[in-house]
Amino acid sequence: MSTAPIFDTAVFDLDGTLLNSLEDLAVSANFALQCLGYPTRSLEEVRQFVGNGGRMLMIRALPAQASPETVQQAFEIFAKHYEQHMRDHTRPYPGIEALLSEMARRGIRMAVVSNKMNEAVGPLVKGWFGGWIPVAVGEGEQIPKKPAPQGVWRALSLLGSCRERSLYLGDSDVDVVTARNAGLYAVGCSWGFRDRTVLEQAGADRIIDRPEELLSLFSAEETKRTGERIFPDFGPDGQHRN
């Protein structure tokens, strides 16, 4: 007798999980630093700075004595530059597109919840994954940043999914804590911006090394029912159309 699938919904982190965006983030951060006369940061330094949103990236990249006014100025320069250059070098990690295609075939519900600015999350998800992922939630006034759970709960509500049958996949300790706070099964991926040790120490329920390993947590059968609108459209602004 076959057993029921463990999960029917996957919520994904974006940067370091679905997209390798590190170079574009570093270029924009360094552009802001140069504009304000500060030394630039290496790619490996920026790797350690990301994960808590663009403002925190600039706080970490700036000297410790930088004033709040300087932080705000740097963030505004970064955000404007990144909006114009966020597609220059960013690409999906190997195996991600095949994974999402197979998950969509099986009728698995999918969303992205990211600490990236909402103005960037929608267009990036729509541009790379819009045929598979209908819901994208980024940093905004109404949604506190991860590890607060509200963004995940918002995504589940839009998908019509429940916490008990949903998992969260991410590459950092922030993602593991987010999953815990939201009541989801926490899956870490080792190909992103943090290494396996960070995910282990954060207490991930499972760690995967290749995208296709995620499929073992879902039914192999196609579950999408005729007429059910599991994969709704994005609006023209890149946001989910209610």
Rank of each mutant, 00 (worst) to 15 (best):
L124P: 02
W128T: 00
V135H: 04
I133Y: 01
V152G: 04
R154V: 11
Q150H: 11
I133K: 01
V137G: 06
W132P: 00
P144G: 01
I133N: 01
F129L: 00
P144L: 08
Q142Y: 11
R154Y: 14
P134L: 06
P147I: 05
I143E: 12
K126E: 06
W132S: 05
Q142R: 14
P123N: 06
G140V: 10
W153S: 08
V137M: 11
E139C: 13
W128I: 00
W132L: 00
V125R: 05
P123E: 11
G151V: 10
G151Q: 13
K145D: 05
K126R: 10
G140F: 08
V152S: 04
Q150A: 14
I133W: 05
F129Q: 02
E139L: 14
G140D: 15
G151M: 10
W153P: 12
I143F: 09
K126P: 02
K146S: 00
W153V: 11
K126N: 11
P149Q: 12
K146A: 10
P123D: 03
P144C: 07
V137K: 10
L124F: 07
G127A: 09
G130R: 06
V125G: 08
G151R: 04
K145G: 02
K126F: 00
E141T: 11
P147A: 06
P149K: 03
P147W: 05
F129Y: 02
G127E: 12
V125P: 04
K126W: 02
V135P: 01
E139F: 14
G151K: 10
G151S: 09
W128K: 00
K145C: 07
G138I: 07
E139S: 15
K146C: 03
F129E: 05
G130A: 08
G138D: 14
V135F: 08
I143G: 12
G130L: 10
W132D: 00
P149I: 12
I133A: 03
I133G: 03
G140E: 15
G131A: 09
G130Y: 00
R154N: 13
G140A: 15
V152C: 10
G138F: 14
G131I: 03
V137A: 13
G127R: 05
G131R: 03
G130M: 07
P134N: 09
V135A: 08
G131N: 07
V152W: 01
K145T: 10
P134I: 06
A136R: 05
V137P: 01
L124N: 05
W132E: 03
P123L: 04
A148K: 13
L124Q: 06
L124D: 03
W128Y: 09
G131D: 11
P149R: 09
G127D: 13
L124G: 09
P147S: 04
G131T: 01
V125H: 03
I133D: 04
P147N: 06
G127C: 04
V152L: 10
F129V: 01
K146E: 14
G140Q: 15
